[in-house]
Design a protein around this nucleic acid. Structure first.
Length: 349
DNA sequence: AAGTCGGGGTG
DNA sequence: CACCCAGACTT
Protein backbone atom coordinates (compact mmCIF):
# COMPACT_ATOMS: atom_id res chain seq x y z
CA UNK A 1 0.00 0.00 0.00
CA UNK A 2 1.26 3.48 -0.82
CA UNK A 3 2.31 5.90 1.90
CA UNK A 4 -0.62 8.16 1.00
CA UNK A 5 -3.15 5.34 1.31
CA UNK A 6 -1.81 4.37 4.73
CA UNK A 7 -1.98 7.97 5.93
CA UNK A 8 -5.54 8.36 4.65
CA UNK A 9 -6.54 5.08 6.25
CA UNK A 10 -5.14 6.28 9.57
CA UNK A 11 -7.03 9.55 9.13
CA UNK A 12 -10.37 7.84 8.68
CA UNK A 13 -9.93 6.32 12.12
CA UNK A 14 -8.39 9.22 14.05
CA UNK A 15 -9.27 12.57 12.42
CA UNK A 16 -10.21 15.62 14.45
CA UNK A 17 -13.45 17.45 13.81
CA UNK A 18 -12.39 21.05 13.24
CA UNK A 19 -14.77 23.86 12.19
CA UNK A 20 -12.75 24.99 9.15
CA UNK A 21 -12.97 21.47 7.74
CA UNK A 22 -16.71 21.79 7.27
CA UNK A 23 -16.46 24.43 4.57
CA UNK A 24 -15.08 24.93 1.07
CA UNK A 25 -15.22 28.72 1.40
CA UNK A 26 -11.68 29.89 0.55
CA UNK A 27 -12.16 32.97 2.74
CA UNK A 28 -12.86 30.95 5.86
CA UNK A 29 -10.10 28.49 5.04
CA UNK A 30 -7.74 31.45 4.58
CA UNK A 31 -8.75 32.79 8.01
CA UNK A 32 -8.01 29.45 9.63
CA UNK A 33 -4.72 28.91 7.83
CA UNK A 34 -3.27 32.32 8.68
CA UNK A 35 -4.37 32.00 12.30
CA UNK A 36 -2.80 28.56 12.56
CA UNK A 37 0.62 29.59 11.21
CA UNK A 38 3.09 28.70 13.99
CA UNK A 39 0.09 28.36 16.29
CA UNK A 40 -1.50 25.34 17.92
CA UNK A 41 -5.04 24.42 16.98
CA UNK A 42 -6.23 24.86 20.59
CA UNK A 43 -4.71 28.33 20.79
CA UNK A 44 -6.07 29.50 17.43
CA UNK A 45 -9.57 28.03 17.71
CA UNK A 46 -11.23 30.82 19.75
CA UNK A 47 -9.71 33.44 17.47
CA UNK A 48 -11.02 31.67 14.37
CA UNK A 49 -14.54 31.52 15.82
CA UNK A 50 -14.44 35.21 16.73
CA UNK A 51 -13.14 36.28 13.32
CA UNK A 52 -15.74 34.27 11.41
CA UNK A 53 -18.52 35.74 13.52
CA UNK A 54 -17.27 39.34 13.35
CA UNK A 55 -16.24 39.23 9.70
CA UNK A 56 -18.39 36.62 7.91
CA UNK A 57 -17.00 37.48 4.48
CA UNK A 58 -13.93 39.04 2.90
CA UNK A 59 -15.68 42.35 2.21
CA UNK A 60 -16.55 42.95 5.85
CA UNK A 61 -12.95 42.07 6.68
CA UNK A 62 -11.53 44.41 4.04
CA UNK A 63 -13.77 47.27 5.13
CA UNK A 64 -12.66 47.07 8.76
CA UNK A 65 -9.72 49.20 9.90
CA UNK A 66 -6.29 47.72 10.55
CA UNK A 67 -6.69 48.77 14.19
CA UNK A 68 -9.91 46.74 14.40
CA UNK A 69 -8.24 43.65 12.90
CA UNK A 70 -5.27 43.94 15.24
CA UNK A 71 -7.61 44.41 18.18
CA UNK A 72 -9.37 41.11 17.43
CA UNK A 73 -5.93 39.57 16.90
CA UNK A 74 -4.73 40.82 20.29
CA UNK A 75 -2.83 38.18 22.25
CA UNK A 76 -2.26 35.78 19.37
CA UNK A 77 1.21 37.04 18.43
CA UNK A 78 2.99 37.42 15.10
CA UNK A 79 0.90 40.49 14.39
CA UNK A 80 2.24 40.88 10.85
CA UNK A 81 -0.25 38.12 10.05
CA UNK A 82 -3.11 40.45 10.93
CA UNK A 83 -1.60 43.40 9.07
CA UNK A 84 -0.97 41.28 5.97
CA UNK A 85 -4.48 39.84 6.11
CA UNK A 86 -5.91 43.32 6.05
CA UNK A 87 -3.80 44.18 2.98
CA UNK A 88 -4.76 40.91 1.27
CA UNK A 89 -8.47 41.46 1.93
CA UNK A 90 -8.21 44.91 0.35
CA UNK A 91 -6.60 43.40 -2.74
CA UNK A 92 -9.33 40.76 -3.00
CA UNK A 93 -11.97 43.50 -2.72
CA UNK A 94 -10.32 45.84 -5.24
CA UNK A 95 -8.74 43.48 -7.76
CA UNK A 96 -10.78 40.27 -7.47
CA UNK A 97 -14.22 41.90 -7.20
CA UNK A 98 -14.52 40.57 -3.68
CA UNK A 99 -14.28 36.96 -4.77
CA UNK A 100 -11.58 35.16 -2.79
CA UNK A 101 -9.24 33.26 -5.18
CA UNK A 102 -8.91 29.48 -5.01
CA UNK A 103 -6.01 28.92 -7.42
CA UNK A 104 -2.50 28.42 -6.01
CA UNK A 105 -0.98 30.79 -8.57
CA UNK A 106 -3.29 33.62 -7.48
CA UNK A 107 -3.15 32.90 -3.75
CA UNK A 108 0.66 32.92 -3.66
CA UNK A 109 0.64 36.57 -4.81
CA UNK A 110 -1.28 37.79 -1.76
CA UNK A 111 0.62 39.19 1.24
CA UNK A 112 0.96 36.72 4.10
CA UNK A 113 0.34 33.72 1.86
CA UNK A 114 3.45 31.63 1.24
CA UNK A 115 3.91 28.20 -0.29
CA UNK A 116 2.35 26.31 2.59
CA UNK A 117 -0.76 28.48 2.86
CA UNK A 118 -1.33 28.64 -0.90
CA UNK A 119 -1.14 24.84 -1.07
CA UNK A 120 -3.51 24.50 1.88
CA UNK A 121 -6.18 26.90 0.62
CA UNK A 122 -6.09 25.69 -3.00
CA UNK A 123 -6.33 22.03 -2.02
CA UNK A 124 -8.90 22.42 0.75
CA UNK A 125 -11.20 24.75 -1.17
CA UNK A 126 -10.87 23.30 -4.67
CA UNK A 127 -8.92 20.02 -4.46
CA UNK A 128 -6.05 21.47 -6.43
CA UNK A 129 -3.15 19.00 -6.43
CA UNK A 130 -0.75 20.95 -4.21
CA UNK A 131 1.14 19.24 -1.39
CA UNK A 132 1.34 21.08 1.93
CA UNK A 133 4.69 21.25 3.69
CA UNK A 134 4.48 22.41 7.29
CA UNK A 135 6.17 21.41 10.53
CA UNK A 136 4.06 18.26 10.77
CA UNK A 137 4.84 17.13 7.23
CA UNK A 138 8.58 17.78 7.66
CA UNK A 139 8.59 15.57 10.73
CA UNK A 140 6.50 12.75 9.30
CA UNK A 141 8.48 12.56 6.05
CA UNK A 142 11.85 12.85 7.79
CA UNK A 143 11.04 9.94 10.07
CA UNK A 144 9.17 7.69 7.68
CA UNK A 145 11.69 8.04 4.85
CA UNK A 146 14.76 8.59 7.04
CA UNK A 147 15.88 11.97 5.71
CA UNK A 148 18.49 13.71 7.86
CA UNK A 149 18.99 16.86 5.82
CA UNK A 150 18.26 19.83 8.13
CA UNK A 151 14.71 20.99 7.45
CA UNK A 152 15.43 24.68 8.01
CA UNK A 153 17.91 25.08 5.16
CA UNK A 154 17.30 25.72 1.45
CA UNK A 155 18.68 22.25 0.66
CA UNK A 156 16.29 20.63 3.11
CA UNK A 157 13.40 22.68 1.87
CA UNK A 158 14.08 21.48 -1.66
CA UNK A 159 14.36 17.79 -0.77
CA UNK A 160 11.28 17.71 1.45
CA UNK A 161 9.28 19.76 -1.01
CA UNK A 162 10.04 17.22 -3.72
CA UNK A 163 9.26 14.31 -1.39
CA UNK A 164 5.97 15.89 -0.33
CA UNK A 165 5.01 16.41 -3.95
CA UNK A 166 5.86 12.81 -4.91
CA UNK A 167 3.76 11.37 -2.11
CA UNK A 168 0.71 13.57 -2.56
CA UNK A 169 -2.46 11.63 -3.35
CA UNK A 170 -3.37 13.43 -6.55
CA UNK A 171 -6.89 12.00 -6.56
CA UNK A 172 -7.68 13.27 -3.06
CA UNK A 173 -5.33 16.19 -2.38
CA UNK A 174 -7.47 17.84 0.30
CA UNK A 175 -8.06 14.59 2.15
CA UNK A 176 -4.40 13.62 2.01
CA UNK A 177 -3.15 17.04 3.13
CA UNK A 178 -5.48 17.09 6.13
CA UNK A 179 -4.52 13.51 6.89
CA UNK A 180 -0.75 13.92 6.97
CA UNK A 181 -1.00 17.03 9.16
CA UNK A 182 -3.33 15.35 11.64
CA UNK A 183 -1.07 12.32 11.63
CA UNK A 184 1.87 14.56 12.53
CA UNK A 185 -0.04 16.44 15.21
CA UNK A 186 -1.68 13.45 16.92
CA UNK A 187 0.40 10.33 16.19
CA UNK A 188 3.87 11.27 14.96
CA UNK A 189 4.29 13.98 17.61
CA UNK A 190 7.58 15.87 18.15
CA UNK A 191 8.12 14.38 21.62
CA UNK A 192 7.14 10.83 22.57
CA UNK A 193 5.34 9.87 19.36
CA UNK A 194 2.88 6.97 19.63
CA UNK A 195 5.00 4.47 17.71
CA UNK A 196 3.86 1.37 19.60
CA UNK A 197 0.31 1.78 18.37
CA UNK A 198 1.21 3.14 14.94
CA UNK A 199 -0.06 1.31 11.86
CA UNK A 200 2.97 2.53 9.90
CA UNK A 201 5.70 1.46 12.32
CA UNK A 202 6.93 -1.53 10.29
CA UNK A 203 7.59 0.71 7.26
CA UNK A 204 8.93 3.68 9.19
CA UNK A 205 12.69 4.19 8.77
CA UNK A 206 13.08 6.01 12.09
CA UNK A 207 11.14 3.37 14.02
CA UNK A 208 12.86 0.40 12.37
CA UNK A 209 16.31 1.94 12.88
CA UNK A 210 15.56 3.41 16.30
CA UNK A 211 16.39 7.00 15.36
CA UNK A 212 12.99 8.56 16.10
CA UNK A 213 14.39 11.12 18.51
CA UNK A 214 17.05 12.19 16.00
CA UNK A 215 14.63 13.14 13.23
CA UNK A 216 13.90 15.60 11.85
CA UNK A 217 17.26 17.40 11.99
CA UNK A 218 17.08 21.13 12.57
CA UNK A 219 19.79 23.81 12.76
CA UNK A 220 19.80 25.37 16.22
CA UNK A 221 18.46 28.88 16.58
CA UNK A 222 20.65 31.68 17.80
CA UNK A 223 20.44 32.60 21.47
CA UNK A 224 18.04 35.36 22.34
CA UNK A 225 19.11 38.82 23.47
CA UNK A 226 18.04 40.79 26.55
CA UNK A 227 16.20 44.11 26.33
CA UNK A 228 15.13 46.51 29.07
CA UNK A 229 11.91 48.46 28.61
CA UNK A 230 10.75 51.27 30.91
CA UNK A 231 7.06 52.14 30.69
CA UNK A 232 5.57 55.34 32.06
CA UNK A 233 1.98 55.55 33.26
CA UNK A 234 1.03 59.17 32.69
CA UNK A 235 -2.55 60.16 33.59
CA UNK A 236 -4.52 63.38 33.74
CA UNK A 237 -8.19 63.42 34.77
CA UNK A 238 -9.77 60.34 33.18
CA UNK A 239 -7.14 60.02 30.47
CA UNK A 240 -3.89 58.16 30.01
CA UNK A 241 -1.05 58.77 27.57
CA UNK A 242 -0.59 56.00 24.98
CA UNK A 243 1.89 55.42 22.18
CA UNK A 244 1.66 53.45 18.93
CA UNK A 245 4.74 51.37 18.14
CA UNK A 246 6.55 51.96 14.86
CA UNK A 247 7.94 49.65 12.21
CA UNK A 248 10.89 47.21 12.15
CA UNK A 249 10.61 45.99 15.72
CA UNK A 250 8.33 43.80 17.77
CA UNK A 251 4.65 44.68 18.10
CA UNK A 252 4.52 46.99 15.07
CA UNK A 253 1.40 49.22 15.11
CA UNK A 254 0.29 48.04 18.55
CA UNK A 255 -0.40 50.43 21.41
CA UNK A 256 1.52 50.70 24.66
CA UNK A 257 2.53 53.26 27.27
CA UNK A 258 5.24 55.81 26.48
CA UNK A 259 8.55 54.07 27.03
CA UNK A 260 12.33 54.25 26.96
CA UNK A 261 14.59 51.31 26.18
CA UNK A 262 17.96 50.98 27.89
CA UNK A 263 20.85 48.71 26.98
CA UNK A 264 21.32 47.48 30.55
CA UNK A 265 19.13 46.83 33.58
CA UNK A 266 18.68 49.87 35.83
CA UNK A 267 18.47 49.98 39.60
CA UNK A 268 15.52 51.61 41.34
CA UNK A 269 14.72 55.06 39.98
CA UNK A 270 17.98 55.62 38.14
CA UNK A 271 16.00 55.91 34.92
CA UNK A 272 15.24 59.47 36.09
CA UNK A 273 18.89 60.38 35.56
CA UNK A 274 19.04 58.76 32.14
CA UNK A 275 19.76 61.25 29.35
CA UNK A 276 16.87 60.22 27.13
CA UNK A 277 14.51 60.48 30.07
CA UNK A 278 15.76 63.99 30.86
CA UNK A 279 15.42 65.04 27.21
CA UNK A 280 11.79 64.01 27.13
CA UNK A 281 10.50 64.65 30.64
CA UNK A 282 13.02 66.99 32.24
CA UNK A 283 14.02 66.78 35.89
CA UNK A 284 10.92 68.32 37.47
CA UNK A 285 8.86 65.14 37.67
CA UNK A 286 7.62 62.78 40.33
CA UNK A 287 8.31 59.15 39.63
CA UNK A 288 7.06 56.10 41.54
CA UNK A 289 7.71 52.44 40.92
CA UNK A 290 4.71 50.24 40.08
CA UNK A 291 6.28 46.98 38.92
CA UNK A 292 9.91 46.03 38.38
CA UNK A 293 11.63 43.61 36.03
CA UNK A 294 8.55 41.90 34.64
CA UNK A 295 10.04 39.22 32.37
CA UNK A 296 8.44 38.64 28.99
CA UNK A 297 9.84 35.91 26.74
CA UNK A 298 9.71 36.09 22.96
CA UNK A 299 11.31 33.80 20.41
CA UNK A 300 14.39 35.94 19.89
CA UNK A 301 14.52 38.17 22.92
CA UNK A 302 13.92 38.33 26.64
CA UNK A 303 12.30 41.59 27.61
CA UNK A 304 12.51 42.94 31.17
CA UNK A 305 9.85 45.58 31.70
CA UNK A 306 9.60 48.10 34.53
CA UNK A 307 6.47 50.19 35.02
CA UNK A 308 6.51 53.63 36.63
CA UNK A 309 3.88 56.20 37.43
CA UNK A 310 4.93 59.64 36.29
CA UNK A 311 3.30 62.84 37.61
CA UNK A 312 3.46 66.42 36.34
CA UNK A 313 5.15 66.00 32.98
CA UNK A 314 5.26 69.29 31.06
CA UNK A 315 5.41 70.09 27.36
CA UNK A 316 5.25 66.48 26.24
CA UNK A 317 2.99 66.78 23.22
CA UNK A 318 5.53 68.85 21.33
CA UNK A 319 8.22 66.22 21.73
CA UNK A 320 6.52 62.95 20.92
CA UNK A 321 4.02 63.21 18.10
CA UNK A 322 2.92 59.58 18.33
CA UNK A 323 1.81 59.97 21.95
CA UNK A 324 -1.84 60.70 22.57
CA UNK A 325 -4.13 60.88 25.57
CA UNK A 326 -6.82 58.21 25.54
CA UNK A 327 -9.89 58.01 27.79
CA UNK A 328 -9.40 55.27 30.37
CA UNK A 329 -12.78 53.81 29.48
CA UNK A 330 -11.64 53.48 25.86
CA UNK A 331 -8.40 51.72 26.72
CA UNK A 332 -9.75 48.25 26.06
CA UNK A 333 -10.64 49.26 22.50
CA UNK A 334 -6.98 49.62 21.57
CA UNK A 335 -4.91 46.72 20.21
CA UNK A 336 -2.21 46.14 22.79
CA UNK A 337 0.51 43.53 23.21
CA UNK A 338 0.60 41.04 26.04
CA UNK A 339 3.03 42.96 28.23
CA UNK A 340 0.59 45.89 28.31
CA UNK A 341 -2.75 44.18 28.66
CA UNK A 342 -1.53 41.80 31.31
CA UNK A 343 -0.19 44.80 33.27
CA UNK A 344 -3.57 46.51 32.90
CA UNK A 345 -5.36 43.44 34.22
CA UNK A 346 -3.59 43.66 37.57
CA UNK A 347 -2.90 47.38 37.85
CA UNK A 348 -5.15 49.94 39.50
CA UNK A 349 -5.27 53.01 37.29
C1' DA B 1 21.44 31.81 4.33
C1' DA B 2 20.41 33.99 8.46
C1' DG B 3 17.50 36.92 11.23
C1' DT B 4 13.06 38.50 12.83
C1' DC B 5 8.34 38.37 14.01
C1' DG B 6 4.54 36.24 19.75
C1' DG B 7 2.61 33.63 22.79
C1' DG B 8 1.72 29.33 24.79
C1' DG B 9 2.28 24.26 25.57
C1' DT B 10 5.33 20.23 26.57
C1' DG B 11 8.85 17.33 28.66
C1' DC C 1 15.45 25.25 30.40
C1' DA C 2 15.03 23.76 25.20
C1' DC C 3 11.97 22.77 21.78
C1' DC C 4 7.85 23.15 19.00
C1' DC C 5 3.58 24.94 16.86
C1' DA C 6 -1.32 24.04 9.87
C1' DG C 7 5.23 29.96 8.27
C1' DA C 8 6.19 34.42 5.97
C1' DC C 9 9.02 38.07 5.15
C1' DT C 10 13.28 40.94 5.22
C1' DT C 11 18.06 41.59 4.98
Amino acid sequence: MSFAKKIIEWYHEHQRDLPWRNTRDPYKIWLSEIILQQTRVEQGMPYYLRFVERYPDVLSFANASEDDILHLWQGLGYYSRGRNMHKAAGIVRDEYQGEFPKAYDELIKLPGIGEYTAAAISSFSNDEAQAVLDGNVFRVLARYFGIDTPINTPAGKKIFSQLAKENLDRTYPALYNQAIMDFGALQCKPKSPLCQQCELQLDCYAKVNDVIADLPVKIKAKKSRNRYFHYFIIQRDEEILMSKRGASDVWENLYEFPMIETSEALEGMSIAAHQEFLDIFGSEVQLTLLQTNKKHILSHQHIYATFYRLLDPRGLERKKINWNYVLLKDLDKLAKHKLIFSFLETAKL
